[in-house]
Nucleic acid binder design. Structure first.
Lengths: 144, 144
DNA sequence: TGTTGACTTAAAGTGCACTTGAAGTTATAT
DNA sequence: ATATAACTTCAAGTGCACTTTAAGTCAACA
């Protein structure tokens, strides 16, 4: 007894707490990612622990997991510790894919930076008059 | 004279050279990103310089630029040096947005790594029997 | 000479992750 | 008491970046 004062959230308040919209939360619920409680009148309510759960899901989502991958993860989680190997394998694959993307994106940034520098030097008249971007990159030893 | 042996590409060969499909190249052309030459019979052909141009566009795209932002960039580029300030401002904004995302995504990776480690320790029985993920993270001083 | 494969256009279709709309119920504030 | 704001469901719509289809033309090879 006396598990009294647990803070609860309406869908609107919960949406603010996790940085989503109410429709998005209903969509996630539909996709099987969340299962809020219901008041007697049918309205949803969320607890503090749901905040952490959704924030964790959003972190996973932010590493590149799709809604359906998240759903698979959630299903496995509901099945208990027996599915830990599957969950671990999924997360490791997500991580591997993430790292590939991460490296690619850093290369993209490198090129973007080079181009910005090239424009800035061109504006301030530092580069050779008609030097193009390709030859500019070569001066720095970059490729592509 | 004698700008002779310039290698040219059919759309299919060009697609392979830049890692896209022929339909995607036609789509990009429609969106105003590329403007290949045409043989007398109407068929497209691409030159070596187009390879570099498309690869550069793909780098910009990889930093988060949408097709319409790329188009804006291309339009300004076609207008000549007078639009360098606009192009520079666009690229700087793209970079700023990119860096925000980049930091967020690194935090997501941190959480993913923590979770993977947590599962691995749980599998090998290193963590306290029923320790949950939240308290596990606290042991490391992370939040969320 | 024929047939296979690559090309052409324009339009419609796909997949993802939401977002919006319609029609109705309930809770809160004046 | 009544207005308005927040909730409910279910279905349809949106935006992006392609992808696929249909119907046809053209080039290269056996």
């Amino acid at each position: 007894m006396a598990t009294a004062t647990e803070k609860i959230y309406s869908i609107g308040d919960f949406a603010k707490a996790v940085g989503l919209t109410a429709p998005t939360l209903r969509y996630y619920e539909n996709e099987g990612l969340i299962e809020p409680h219901r008041h007697a009148n049918g309205r949803r309510y969320y607890e503090e622990s749901d905040v952490n759960w959704v924030k964790f899901l959003l972190h996973l989502k932010g590493t590149g997991m799709s809604i359906s991958e998240l759903k698979q993860y959630v299903v496995w989680r509901a099945e208990g510790d027996a599915t830990i190997p599957q969950r671990l394998e999924l997360l490791k694959q997500v991580k591997a894919d993430f790292l590939v993307q991460f490296n690619e994106v850093q290369h993209h940034l490198q090129i973007l930076n080079d181009k910005i520098n090239w424009y800035e030097e061109k504006e301030t008249g530092i580069t050779t008059d008609n030097e193009n971007f390709a030859s500019y990159l070569q001066r720095f030893g970059h490729h592509e």
